[in-house]
């Protein structure tokens, strides 16, 4: 049985980049009979990127390379590797690129710190703003003179045309 390797086609850019026949995405022939192992293989498949596709996991992709990688994952699992070892094995061969969940290393430090940084920074900004402005909410408002109030009410009721 010949297997067509679907080349990823890049659809024009506003659109999502997707690949050929999704029904190729997972072939039952690859699957484990043991549901526990199969679940592990699928979970790992979601952590690994199909190296030719745009941000698709090998679990979701139908590219030929994704299938090859799924087979590798299953081979490693069958060989008794732990999840970590499987990921590491693939990382050594395909590079960091293959991990959808980037590792915390020196060069991804900013990436992992950024979310916290955004929260802290924007939180601080808001805190400063509140500190400066929020106090006033509890103080009584300065009163308007009766004359001003009358004029304002006239304005608001539309009686006074132009000042």
């Amino acid at each position: 049985m010949k297997r067509a390797v679907m080349k990823p086609i890049l659809i024009s850019a506003v659109l999502l980049a997707m690949t050929g026949a999704p029904a190729h995405a997972l072939d039952p022939n690859e699957m484990f009979d043991d549901p526990v192992l199969e679940q592990r293989a699928r979970d790992l498949g979601r952590e690994l990127r199909c190296v030719k596709c745009r941000n698709q996991s090998i679990f979701d992709s139908n590219a030929g390379i994704a299938q090859d990688m799924r087979v590798v994952v299953r081979e490693r699992i069958a060989a008794g590797d732990s999840d970590e070892e499987v990921l590491e094995w693939l990382r050594e061969r395909y590079g960091d690129y293959v991990l959808l969940n980037p590792r915390a290393t020196g060069q991804t430090a900013l990436l992992w710190l950024a979310p916290l940084g955004f929260l802290v920074l924007s939180g601080l900004g808001a805190g400063v703003y509140l500190y400066r402005h929020a106090g006033g909410g509890d103080a009584p408002d300065p009163a308007l003179s009766d004359e001003d109030r009358a004029r304002a009410q006239a304005l608001l009721s539309g009686r006074e045309k132009t000042p």
């Binding site: 979601r46 952590e47 941000n55 996991s57 590079g95 690129y97 959808l100 980037p102 060069q107 990436l111």
Partner: peptide, 8 residues
Amino acid sequence: KITVGAPY
């Protein structure tokens, strides 16, 4: 080359 995917 790194990837930032759904898990992140």
